[in-house]
Computed example of a mutant assay.
Amino acid sequence: MPKIRPEQVAATVKKSLAPVYFVFGDEPLIVQESCDAIRTAAREQAFIERELYHTDAGFSWDELYNSANAMSLFADKKIIEIRVHNGKPGDAGGKAIAEYCASPNEETLLLIVSPKIDARSQKSKWFTAIENCGATIQVWPIGPQQMARWVDQRMKRAGLNADSEAIDILCAKTEGNLLAAVQEIEKLKLVAEGTLIDAHTMTTAVTDSARFDVFGLVDKAMHGDSRAAAHSLQGLRGEGSEPLSLLWALAREIRALNSIREAIDSGEHFDRAAQRNGVWEKRKPLFKGALSRLKTRQLHDLIRKAALADRAAKGMANGDVWNILLDIVLGLAGTRVLSAKNQKLEFRS
């Protein structure tokens, strides 16, 4: 099956479902929306159950064999979703994926989600097996050059039209943060009179933003201001913000930091690594400051906590998602919190 572009996913899966999908990239909003489209189409075709696995500590690729071969109590079709936290399934994972793709279960849809993977991994046996059996969706970052066009398309999808000046204002406000841009567009639908958005309307809407905003939270944490970041998180919670929206914004920066850290440790220059990870020029000092505080081990711990927060928000792990988000915010700010190895992670059956 050919590769599917993210903007084609919703229409493609409505026509027919592949047995295996691999969604990968470092643009959390688009990755999430691509996965949502696949899950929605699968549910419409009676894939009722969903099993979610994360390839962090304690995961075994035997889970794929066991889950695919296990009969459901009610004989429902099911989705097996595996999130490969570092984009590297390893030898055991590569073998398990290739073997599954050689003989997929008709009652199961396998969805694998991962950050971006390198060119070498895209030539591996397991990746080729997915291409031969199912479909791959590669999500590319939206850079400064593409941002205006993306915002324009998103506005039209929301039933709004904006002139070029208004679009430039929104791009400048959100600085490449897609989730933030979507939130602003949703707000415009509520406050704008009519469907035509000009520069004045956009400026007014941006000026009237809520006191606490997602980017402010992330920037305060990245700056190392733990007190202000925790205060922003509490404010966002009080305003009824969705925890998953905050998590996407935090996880995006944490993954970028981790990717840049790995690149620097491998000898790559910071500027090149930052550009490759979609870091805008204005935000480079913020990333440099965060990297000066955070070690590789701390970044990996934050990635694990983000995965736990995702599960808790979806009712698949015990624990208060807001407490976990606070841990993430404080950890990103460089404040020492309870070590992951001392946390008891209890999963709901």
Rank of each mutant, 00 (worst) to 15 (best):
L29D: 00
G331N: 07
K3M: 10
R211T: 11
D225A: 15
T128I: 01
R293A: 06
P115G: 07
T12V: 13
N177L: 05
K3G: 10
V218S: 06
E131T: 13
T296L: 11
H231T: 10
N177T: 00
D301W: 02
A309T: 01
L73K: 04
H85N: 09
T55F: 03
A42W: 11
K116P: 00
S349M: 03
P285L: 07
F47R: 03
Y53G: 05
L325M: 10
G235S: 09
Q275C: 00
S226A: 15
Q298Y: 06
R39K: 09
M316V: 00
S226F: 09
L338N: 02
V329F: 11
L29V: 08
E262T: 01
R227H: 07
A10S: 15
A135I: 03
G240H: 08
I82F: 14
A181D: 03
Q343R: 07
L52S: 05
L247Y: 02
D168T: 10
P115V: 00
A18C: 10
T204C: 08
W248A: 15
N66T: 09
V191L: 11
D36E: 14
P28D: 04
M222L: 15
I185F: 01
A306P: 02
D225S: 15
E175N: 06
I142G: 06
R39G: 02
K78Q: 11
V20K: 14
M202N: 02
R211S: 11
L73P: 07
N177S: 15
Q298F: 06
P144H: 10
L326M: 14
N258C: 02
E7V: 06
I169S: 14
A317S: 12
A68Y: 05
E51V: 06
F270Q: 06
I260W: 04
L330R: 14
A57Q: 07
L299N: 05
A162C: 14
A68P: 02
G87E: 04
N177A: 15
G87R: 04
A119T: 01
I254M: 13
P89Y: 11
R336F: 07
K220D: 11
T195A: 15
D163M: 05
A221S: 12
T207N: 14
K282T: 00
R211E: 11
A46M: 12
G194E: 01
D198A: 13
I112Q: 12
K3H: 11
V13G: 10
N323D: 03
V321S: 01
K125M: 00
K288L: 08
E27T: 09
A102P: 01
Y53T: 00
G159F: 13
I197W: 06
F24M: 09
T335E: 15
R157N: 10
G194S: 07
Q8S: 14
E346A: 12
A119S: 08
Q183M: 14
E81V: 00
N323C: 11
A313F: 11
M202K: 13
L332F: 01
T55S: 03
S232M: 08
E131H: 13
M1H: 13
G25Q: 06
H223Q: 15
E175T: 12
A70E: 08
A180V: 04
R293P: 06
Q32A: 13
A230W: 09
G240A: 03
A98K: 15
P144G: 12
G319L: 05
E27G: 09
K14F: 02
A180M: 10
K116L: 02
A37P: 08
R348S: 13
A41S: 14
E268D: 12
R255P: 00
